[in-house]
Deep mutational scan, measured.
Amino acid sequence: MTVLPKDIPGDSLKVTVGTANGKPGDTVTVPVTFADVAKMKNVGTCNFYLGYDASLLEVVSVDAGPIVKNAAVNFSSSASNGTISFLFLDNTITDELITADGVFANIKFKLKSVTAKTTTPVTFKDGGAFGDGTMSKIASVTKTNGSVTIDP
């Protein structure tokens, strides 16, 4: 049996954390987006972790974005102690894959008090994996961190 590389060099799934701005007490939304989904033969499963400074940001909610089908079954998240974990699994293993680019999740943060303008990162942590529509590992994932700026 011969195994051929399935990824064209330079191609990767792009996962990007967005940015937001606000004043202390505001609730802002930071999107997590996927790009080049079709090039990577869709997404059938993924789990990953984001870190944030809990002294500056309070997670209000984490909701599935419009590219997630049947989110009540296929999407899960949790947030505590400065870490947000995400889990997606197409429970049907074929019919509810992520097949389009767009917003995977929206994180709502309540901004805490600061004395001066502060930009705090929302960054990928170690761990996690992504699988394509056949549940094979997506070897190349380009992750881009985001941030939230609090301006009193």
Rank of each mutant, 00 (worst) to 15 (best):
L4S: 10
D7M: 05
P9V: 10
S12I: 12
S12T: 13
V15H: 06
V15L: 07
V17F: 14
G18Q: 11
N21I: 12
N21L: 11
G22L: 07
K23M: 11
G25N: 09
D26V: 11
T27L: 10
V30G: 08
V30C: 07
V30E: 11
V32E: 06
D36R: 13
A38P: 10
A38S: 12
M40R: 10
M40Y: 09
K41S: 09
K41Y: 10
N42F: 15
C46I: 01
C46R: 03
G51K: 13
D53E: 07
L56F: 09
L56C: 10
L56M: 10
E58D: 11
V59T: 08
D63Y: 07
D63N: 14
D63H: 13
G65P: 08
G65A: 09
P66Q: 10
P66E: 12
P66T: 14
I67D: 12
V68G: 07
K69C: 15
K69A: 11
N70V: 10
N70S: 12
A71R: 10
A72T: 14
A72L: 13
N74Q: 00
F75P: 01
A79C: 15
G82Y: 15
G82L: 15
T83I: 15
T83F: 15
I84T: 05
I84H: 00
S85V: 03
F86G: 03
F88Q: 00
L89P: 02
L89Q: 00
D90P: 02
D90Y: 06
D90C: 00
N91H: 07
T92G: 03
T92S: 01
D95I: 03
I98H: 00
T99K: 14
D101Q: 03
G102T: 03
G102C: 06
A105H: 00
I107P: 01
F109H: 02
L111E: 01
S113R: 09
S113Q: 05
K117H: 03
K117A: 03
T120D: 06
T120L: 04
V122L: 04
T123M: 14
F124Q: 02
F124I: 02
A129E: 06
F130K: 00
F130Y: 05
G133L: 03
G133E: 04
M135E: 02
K137F: 00
V141W: 01
T142Q: 07
K143F: 01
K143T: 02
N145D: 05
S147Q: 05
V148A: 08
T149H: 15
T149C: 15
T149I: 14
